[in-house]
């Protein structure tokens, strides 16, 4: 099948479409009635709920920890205070990055050239990996919440060996994941295990798309304005 035959074949679809569409006026009026179309409306309820829960968690955590620091610091368990503070700060950073990315993605001008826009969108989507990396950094502090001064006075070596090993293991895993969760490792088994699930589909597909875009990006040209 040569070039002309291919295009001729495609034109038969046009004729058929024209015939069908002539009888069907699209209800574009419906769309123009949309008053406010905010990015929040495009989020799935579960994501919205997670975001709200995160904001409430960080908000309440900040209030409680600040209050404790100001008025009851001397009486409180310092291990709990330190662990909770690290947890709240890391969650706040992850939330900030997540919301910033959502807004930036929403603001991308989709009437720009396709390759440029898709590279921008895919990179933004992939940068949500930062959220995961930061959240994993919290791992060790979940093992130190309950530490207290009595442990240092009464515990024997075996008890410390167990507790210390768990905390060190969590610390190692957290730091290792922080440095290794990145686009370049997308084909590793452990990576696929972590990002296995429907909620990660957009991220994984962004990576696939970026691979496709690599084939094109060698000569992405600067935008020209001479097309009228």
């Amino acid at each position: 099948m040569n070039e002309l035959e291919l295009k001729k074949l495609w034109q038969t679809a046009n004729e058929k479409l024209e015939k069908t569409l002539a009888d069907n006026r699209i209800n574009s009026n419906e769309i123009s009635q949309l008053k406010v179309y905010h990015f929040i409306s495009s989020m799935k309820p579960i994501k919205l709920f997670t975001l709200l829960a995160g904001i409430i968690w960080v908000g309440l955590g900040t209030i409680i920890l600040s209050h404790t620091y100001l008025y009851a610091f001397s009486e409180m368990n310092k291990f709990f205070f330190f662990s909770a503070s690290v947890q709240v700060i890391l969650t706040a950073i992850a939330l900030f990055i997540y919301v910033y990315q959502l807004i930036t993605i929403y603001q991308v001008d989709i009437s720009e050239p396709v390759l440029k826009t898709q590279i921008k969108l895919s990179n933004l989507k992939i940068s949500t990996l930062w959220v995961t990396r930061i959240l994993f950094l919290q791992l060790p502090v979940w093992t130190t919440f309950w530490w207290n001064e009595v442990m240092f006075q009464e515990w024997n070596a075996f008890q410390w060996l167990i507790t210390g090993s768990v905390t060190l293991a969590f610390l190692f895993v957290a730091i290792w994941l922080f440095f290794n969760i990145k686009f370049e490792n997308r084909d590793k088994k452990w990576f696929k295990l972590i990002f296995n699930g429907k909620e990660w589909t957009p991220l994984i597909k962004s990576m696939e798309l970026l691979e496709q875009l690599d084939e094109y990006s060698v000569d992405i040209r600067p935008e020209t304005n001479a097309s009228t």
Partner: peptide, 30 residues
């Protein structure tokens, strides 16, 4: 109007279609 309207329309259509592929399993309720 520095671009043809069809160029502009194709860019939007293709950008949305490709982005739609990215989130194809998560159709929103809107």
């Amino acid at each position: 109007n520095q671009f043809k309207i069809s160029t502009w329309f194709y860019r939007i259509s293709l950008n949305v279609a490709i982005s739609f592929y990215r989130k194809s399993t998560t159709r929103a309720n809107k």
